[in-house]
Simulated assay, not measured.
Amino acid sequence: MTTTSDGLTAPFALARFRDGEDVRLGLVAGDRIRALSTDELGAASLNAFLAHPDWERLRRLATAASAPELAEGWMPLADVVLTAPVEPRQVLQAGANYREHVIELVVAGLTQDQSRSPEEAREFAARMMDDRAANGEPYFFLGLPTVVVGDDVPLVLPEYSDVHDWELELAVVIGKEAFRVSRDEALDHVAGYTIVNDVTTRDLVFRKDMKEIGTDWFRSKNAPGFLPTGPFLVPAPFVDGSDVTVRLDLNGETMQNGSTSDLLFGIPALISAASQTTALLPGDLLLTGSPPGNGQHWKRFLRDGDVMTGSITGLGTQVVRCLAEGPAV
């Protein structure tokens, strides 16, 4: 796969790239990348750096990328294969967090019995969402860190279902540890942002053998490769997470195109709420929810050969290719 910086507007970002059998941390500036040593990073690992990110240190290194000739250590970005730019220990996912998306779901349910007109159902649903935003709390579930992959890995569609769905999301990358922080303090714990496609198997979301249990996020969201992430980790100072466009195209056709300005619970509220229960650790991912336009809405799910192109303002472009699961060898 050819790696480009399409859609990356920050003066520099972090990425991880393949070097033979190894994966190395790199600094990206424009269409160039260079490996970062621990001395240059000023930390023993990526997560150790994110606990106390020194972006100014990396800014000074990035200035060399603007030289007309390739400065020492820099390579064309197109010559490397990027993988997931993060190594989270925890993945927290916010559900039902885009106002318009949830209103659409509620309206669909309310109009099935024809007791309300579409207009009445929308007005009722909008009041529900406004009350939830004012008086409710975010809804979280957990993903497995082992499911996080780069878009260099094809998305293999498990053969046990035909209803695998896309959910493009803005993901917060945690910086210094956050435990029981207030909304006012929350953004101090953000190191950066990245793109995540939170793939979901729709017919496994609700248990059929014991409906009282409710949702089964473990089975529906944690097949191998179900969290394509990256390609870049963009420093928080370069991103206004409260108003970025989240767009997913399937085979060139736009399916999702929303803004984080429509979040019921913004990033400070999500971080604060999640941190009341557990400590969020450096490098952890906090997914913020997905805008309208999932496959469930379009009645069109992922198939062998599909190509998903996801972009978020300033964070670059993620390209995920889908493959049908072959027979076990």
Rank of each mutant, 00 (worst) to 15 (best):
D284H: 06
T254S: 07
P228E: 04
N294R: 14
A269S: 11
L280F: 02
Q296G: 15
G305R: 13
L302M: 13
K208E: 08
D243N: 15
T254Y: 11
S220F: 08
D249C: 08
L264G: 00
H297R: 14
G258C: 09
K299Y: 00
I213K: 15
I213L: 15
L263G: 02
L286K: 06
D304P: 07
E212F: 11
Q256L: 12
S272N: 00
L264Y: 00
T260N: 13
L285A: 08
D304K: 06
G214H: 07
F265P: 00
T278R: 04
G305W: 13
D216V: 04
G214N: 06
G283C: 00
T254W: 10
D243G: 12
G225L: 12
L248Y: 09
F218K: 07
K221V: 08
L287E: 11
L280Y: 09
I267W: 02
R300V: 01
R247T: 15
V244D: 08
A279R: 15
P292A: 06
F232N: 12
H297Y: 05
P235Q: 06
G289W: 03
L285C: 01
R303I: 08
R247E: 14
E212Y: 05
G295Y: 09
D240C: 01
F218A: 13
G225A: 11
P292I: 02
K211G: 04
T260G: 12
L286N: 02
V239A: 09
V244A: 14
T254C: 10
W298K: 13
L248N: 14
D304W: 11
P224Q: 07
Q296N: 14
P292L: 07
W298G: 02
P228K: 08
A223M: 10
L302G: 07
